[in-house]
Design a protein around this nucleic acid. Structure first.
Length: 275
DNA sequence: CGAGCAACCTGCATGC
DNA sequence: TGCATGCAGGTTGCTC
């Protein structure tokens, strides 16, 4: 599921169920996630003070510290009632005051849940993260300045969480298409102007996806459905071999940084020397 | 230090 | 139908 828009959609979906409620208990039924889940027992009965997001992590602030949740590749949260039968890969319940629980399911177990009593932004998972793509520090100049010595493909550059967070495989491909940049170009050869286009594209696409995600919010949180919003607006991801929506050339697919990357060889010509 | 890649897991679509 | 293969929206941590 989750790239940044899906995580933000999830955060917005669960926030009203959590805020100013009491966390009655965290029931760790199966602790085998990316790292073994260990939550202190005295979190039970604490008040939930905020539900925030940093990168693809959801931060749930309680009276004694923060829960740091990551959905990995296949994690999801559903709102359930306590009598809902346990399904395969239901790992954790956040038991909230009132007649519902938040149930975490993760087949591939790439997700994680941590607790920290300290400042969550100093936690080892968060402390080295790059800037937020929708925040003020992110810009074309920022991407340009951080890329001068980088020989990796520009696609890897924007997917590097130490540079900018939240840009996953789907949105990286989409942003490069919409800014006309060839994904395989070395990052240090992309011009300032091209990075300006790219930064705008990243912002636009992510913001847009979050907005559209909002419309499917209720279904998403309530029923564990996969949000269907993005398929419609995707221009390249998953469309290899199909005609480019701009020029009708068949889209090509290439593995870059071990991830498949779809692009249009006609529309994405920016190689770093020109515009 | 940067770059490249293996690893962590299961589920699903595909092809024989 | 059964089985093998390849691929999947993320991230860490190992090598060189």
């Amino acid at each position: 599921m989750p790239e940044l828009p899906e995580v933000e959609t999830t955060r917005r979906g669960i926030e009203p169920f959590l805020l100013k409620r009491t966390l009655r208990n965290v029931d760790v039924r199966d602790p085998r996630l990316r790292w073994p889940v260990e939550i202190p027992a005295d979190i039970s009965g604490t008040l939930i003070k905020s539900v925030r997001r940093r990168a693809k992590y959801i931060l749930i602030e309680t009276a004694i510290g923060h829960l740091i949740l990551h959905l990995g590749m296949s994690g999801s949260l559903r709102v359930v009632t306590p009598d809902e039968p346990i399904k395969l890969h239901d790992h954790i319940d956040l038991q909230i005051s009132g007649n519902y629980w938040l149930r975490y399911n993760d087949p591939r177990r790439f997700g994680s849940l941590h607790f920290t009593a300290g400042n969550p932004f100093d936690h080892w998972l968060l402390k080295d993260l790059g800037v937020e793509p929708l925040g003020n520090e992110f810009s074309g100049d920022y991407l340009f300045d951080n890329s001068r010595r980088r020989k990796v493909a520009v696609k890897n550059h924007i997917m590097d969480g130490k540079v900018v967070v939240g840009v996953g495989n789907i949105y990286a491909a989409e942003a490069l298409f919409s800014s006309g940049i060839r994904p395989s170009v070395p990052a240090h050869r992309v011009s300032r102007r091209a990075y300006a286009r790219l930064a705008h594209a990243i912002r636009d696409i992510l913001a847009n996806a979050i907005n559209v995600g909002g419309t499917t919010l209720r279904d998403f949180v309530g029923s564990d459905g996969q949000p269907g919003y993005f398929k419609q607006s995707l221009n390249v991801y998953g469309r290899q071999g199909l005609p480019c929506r701009t020029c009708e050339q068949p889209l090509r697919c290439k593995v870059i940084g071990q991830r498949s990357t779809v692009f249009c060889s006609r529309c994405q010509k920016t190689s770093g020397w020109g515009a």
